[in-house]
Write a protein that binds this DNA or RNA. Structure first.
Lengths: 147, 147
DNA sequence: TCCTTATTGAATTAAATTATCATTTAGCAT
DNA sequence: ATGCTAAATGATAATTTAATTCAATAAGGA
């Protein structure tokens, strides 16, 4: 993936900030990052970056298909680099731990929707929530049920 | 579903505000509502309701399984009444129109995850994004590609 | 009817995201 | 190389959204 070509072909410019952000996304492939996460890590490569640049760049990267948003609980935004192969996340509602799900069922779903509606699907999001092994063993799910 | 019993059995109280909110959710089954939506509609049944009550009540309803959160684009929160049968949404990224997807593939997924990990799944979210028929015909997806 | 305490509304606070704007700079043309 | 133009940035302010605080209210068991 040549970031410069990809940007310039659509009239955008290659900047050190955008390179730094892409680097951060690459180094954290598969791990959802918040804008603040990205800001902190990219800031080490390019000191002085403003947080607004992160938001702007992530919007752009998502539009270009370079990254995609991940929807977890809490309503906040997370992003990941788009490496083509879909995956999803399983989030522990007790400790917050994330596990990667390589399995993607979007193809099955897309087929169902193609038959049943008139939508052209371009993207999707899916996350599972529950309890991880450690929290189950520690009884965290019972604590939560009691509260 | 007896709201009063459900609340009291866990030490909570039945209030006119909670009844009003449940009524709004019932009347909009299958349609994701924002806290602001709920506030506006419930306010007609129970004048003077504060927005904080909506947030508090929706947290409670979700905890009790009376409602569940819907994750759409934008990172904002939406809620729906939980009528047992899972469904999902297809959101048009051009006009925002929502379509209900009766099909739920959570069972397939849950099985995959049960085999491949140690998580106990308690809930999930899934949404599809793309273009609805009208926007496709109107060329909205091309406009978006150009911008 | 009384009492305890959950609940509420109003106001405040905090946090996340977006908008504004002057300045900088990427990248094409010269 | 140099200059030019528009894109991009950083700083800041403004918006939104959500959470918190607290005194007043009211649900519901005794």
């Amino acid at each position: 993936m040549d970031l410069g070509r990809r940007l310039r072909s659509r009239g955008y410019r290659l900047t050190p900030q955008r390179e730094a952000i892409l680097g951060v996304l690459r180094e954290n492939a598969g791990r959802p990052l918040s804008p603040e996460d990205i800001h902190a890590m990219a800031g080490k490569k390019q000191p002085g970056m403003g947080i607004a640049t992160i938001y702007r760049t992530m919007d752009l990267f998502c539009e270009l298909g370079i990254a995609f948003p991940v929807h977890l609980r809490g309503g906040y935004r997370f992003y990941e680099i788009n490496l083509g192969k879909h995956h999803h996340h399983m989030e522990c509602i007790a400790c917050g731990k994330l596990e990667l799900l390589e399995a993607c069922v979007i193809d099955d779903i897309a087929e169902l929707v193609r038959d049943g509606s008139d939508f052209l699907i371009t993207s999707h999001c899916m996350s599972l929530f529950g309890y991880c092994r450690q929290c189950l063993e520690g009884g965290k799910e019972k604590e939560a049920a009691e509260s």
